[in-house]
Computed example of a mutant assay.
Amino acid sequence: MNVPVGIVLVSHSAELAAGLRLLMRQIGSDSVPVATAAGSGDGGIGTSYDLVLSAVEDADRGRGVLVLPDLGSSVLTARAVLADHPRRDVVIADAPFVEGAVAAVVTAASGADLRTVADSAEGARHVRKL
């Protein structure tokens, strides 16, 4: 069985990440491991270094992990975690949060490798809506 690339959603809002994770599960079935690192850890708005680190471990099934932050300090937090715990099989995507996540989960569900999943997420930046 082909294990897909995992995806981590890093957001300031637990509710935002949970909603996006639900959408991704509906699109990518349950085959793609999607973990969230959202909120400050105490129920507030913010990002947590420890939650990001834990989510990367949760999403890892051996094919790599794509980290997708929403904005601002979530990007900084995710980058700090990856700098402190460097792994060749964990990358951060410079992609729109919702569109990038959807593109990533569809691509990961097809069995694509980490670089292809990351490219798909980042390519979502150029998809026009109208």
Rank of each mutant, 00 (worst) to 15 (best):
S110P: 02
A18C: 13
S74G: 15
L68V: 05
P86W: 08
S13T: 02
A95M: 05
G28D: 01
S54E: 07
G111M: 09
G19S: 04
V105Y: 11
V75S: 10
L16I: 05
G100E: 06
A124Q: 12
P69K: 03
A118T: 13
V32M: 07
A101V: 15
S120Q: 06
I45G: 09
A78C: 08
L16V: 10
G62E: 06
A95E: 11
S40M: 01
S54Y: 00
G41C: 02
V75Q: 08
D58H: 04
G41I: 03
R115E: 15
V75G: 11
G19W: 04
D58T: 03
R79Y: 00
V52W: 00
A59T: 01
H12M: 12
D113A: 14
P96H: 14
A109V: 02
D70L: 06
D119Q: 09
A38H: 15
S48K: 04
L71M: 10
D84A: 15
D84W: 09
A55R: 05
D30M: 01
S120C: 03
R63F: 02
V65N: 01
V81M: 12
D50V: 15
A37G: 14
V67Q: 00
V91Q: 02
T107L: 04
S120I: 06
G72K: 00
T107C: 05
V106S: 13
V106I: 07
D84M: 15
A101E: 10
A104D: 00
G19M: 06
